[in-house]
Design a protein around this nucleic acid. Structure first.
Lengths: 136, 136
DNA sequence: ATTAATTTGTACGTATGTATG
DNA sequence: TCATACATACGTACAAATTAA
């Protein structure tokens, strides 16, 4: 698979699609590093900007995490902790603002779940580690 | 408020913070257009790249939406539809991959809620229009 | 209805800073 | 110390969509 310059789909989205498929197919295993930006740039014959846009897109999807100085890695799915939605409780999911994300130490592309209790109390849970449940 | 070039906080994050506060404070009302990228670039004395990175960050937070040819707008919060988490049901929240996002017509920065029923069926709901509830 | 101006999107380049190995 | 790698920030140019004239 390669990049089609004649396609209407932007280069960086085509590249993101290729990498995403590589993740889904297991070509890139969970926790494994992707090729460096330079390597991807050369391998697919695109600018570094296109590579960075593709990786940024995958980060917002929670598929990839990047740390400065290291190659991007396939973000492993953490264990989910069951959290009970109590009677009369309500829950919503939203993306955290950047300062809130830093405060909770969340990866990019990870939503938060707000759990609203009957008494008005609100808990905030990282969505990647949370599974809302209701007992039978 | 303005940009501090000596700060260790990147220019684009400082700018994103300023715009975000402008949204929270009501200076930019829901649905209202933000200044154009050029206007922001000139007003704060930063490059267009920094402006675009700031807006991209706010989009991933679901605070702003942008369409080509139009100025970015403060994303209005849609009505939430109550969805019952049934007995024995489970729910998780995650970001949709780009093709899935396009398929469902979701804005950037909007998670999806996966509702897993006891019989194995899975519903997918847009998180910005969904409120999970459990009756008392 | 056409044209022009505005605005965002994509893609490239260069340079420098900062963190890792 | 040195090389590698990602982050930031500026620039240019052109494409594509909308808005205004």
């Amino acid at each position: 698979m390669s990049i089609d310059r004649r396609s209407h789909t932007p280069v960086y989205r085509q590249l993101a699609n290729l990498i995403r498929e590589g993740i889904y197919s297991g070509q890139y295993a969970a926790g494994a590093p992707l090729p460096s930006e330079l390597a991807l740039s050369q391998e697919y014959g695109v600018g570094r900007d296109a590579v960075r846009q593709a990786l940024a897109l995958l980060r917002t999807e929670g598929l990839v995490s990047t740390e400065r100085g290291e190659r991007s890695r396939v973000r492993p799915a953490p264990e989910r902790v069951p959290v009970e939605l109590p009677p009369g409780g309500r829950a919503i999911a939203r993306m955290p603002a950047d300062p809130e994300r830093a405060e909770h130490g969340l990866d990019e592309g990870v939503p938060v779940i707000e759990l609203h209790h009957l008494d008005g109390a609100i808990d905030v849970h990282p969505a990647d580690r949370t599974e809302l449940i209701r007992p039978t």
